[in-house]
């Protein structure tokens, strides 16, 4: 039973939601297997309470968040975002969480910090994909991700602890995950245990695994195709069977061009994909 959360509702969003049953049954979380149905089937083995997230690196006040802190230390708000997967499908999810910047401010970041590096839990005894490369898709574990500091501080960037009014199901990255709505879904690292401020560009799992296919930035960009498929449009997963599908044009920065394009002023986005 997932605990209900108290939060401020998102009243601005015009997007119609993907049904909860689909959001919690169709997941990429290779720690539990590479098939989309594996996480829902196997993630119940993961113990999320107790949990600890350490915030360290180039900060003046390193600290730790325990399980209860995740829901009480920051004021929770709902954010309805479209999650655009690099595989050219998307879902609209009502996340509940808090701004990453709120957390980073508590740590009092040193001026030398330029990037934020994230790490997922490594616990092969509960994450079958980490114990066998045949199950875990041969990607290196633990899963790591990273953001530039200005991306991390952006008000759209949140740490989610829930969806659809309740705490996150394990398969969706419990108890705490990143959500960066203008980037492809793989940037939104799940089940985070460490957040480290650094002055060097962090390594990221998919970039290490296939650098010509997955860049560090991974901004949603209809003009830059994945080498093996087009990113110009996407299939929006909502309710509805085969005869009721919606293919929509992909928007630059997943629709947040106005808010985030200035972060990348002067950069060649086909090179820094």
């Amino acid at each position: 039973i997932l605990k209900p959360l108290t939060y401020k509702s998102d009243t601005n969003s015009q997007l119609s939601l993907t049904p909860e049953s689909k959001v919690i049954s169709y997941n990429n979380f290779y720690e539990f297997g590479t098939s989309k149905s594996d996480p829902a089937e196997h993630a119940h083995k993961l113990t999320v309470d107790p949990w600890q997230v350490t915030i360290n690196g180039l900060v003046n006040k390193p600290f730790k968040l325990n399980y209860e802190d995740l829901y009480s230390k920051f004021s929770l708000e709902e954010r309805i975002y479209r999650l655009r997967c690099v595989e050219a499908w998307s879902m609209v999810v009502p996340w509940i969480g808090f701004k990453l910047s709120d957390l980073l401010k508590l740590a009092d970041i040193k001026s030398s910090a330029k990037y934020v590096a994230f790490e997922t839990l490594e616990r092969p005894s509960e994450m079958r994909g980490q114990s066998s490369r045949f199950i875990g898709g041969s990607i290196p574990y633990p899963y790591i991700e990273g953001l530039r500091l200005d991306e991390a501080m952006h008000p759209l960037t949140i740490l989610a602890v829930g969806l659809y009014g309740k705490a996150l199901p394990n398969q969706n990255g419990a108890p705490i995950r990143l959500i960066v709505p203008w980037k492809y879904g793989f940037k939104s690292i799940k089940s985070i245990t460490n957040i480290r401020l650094t002055d060097k560009l962090p390594n990221t799992t998919w970039n290490l695994s296939a650098p010509n296919e997955y860049g560090f930035y991974a901004n949603v960009n209809p003009k830059v195709d994945h080498p093996r498929w087009s990113q110009a449009s996407e299939r929006l997963i909502t309710s509805g069977g085969l005869l009721n599908q919606r293919r929509i044009p992909t928007q630059a920065f997943n629709g947040y061009q106005e808010e985030v394009a200035p972060l990348y002023k002067g950069m060649d986005l086909s090179r820094f994909f």
Partner: peptide, 18 residues
């Protein structure tokens, strides 16, 4: 399988499934 996918009973993404 087509019956399941047409009626949205074939997982979250009936297109991918079929």
């Amino acid at each position: 399988q087509y019956y399941l996918s047409v009626n949205d009973l074939n997982g979250a993404d009936p297109v991918k499934a079929i």
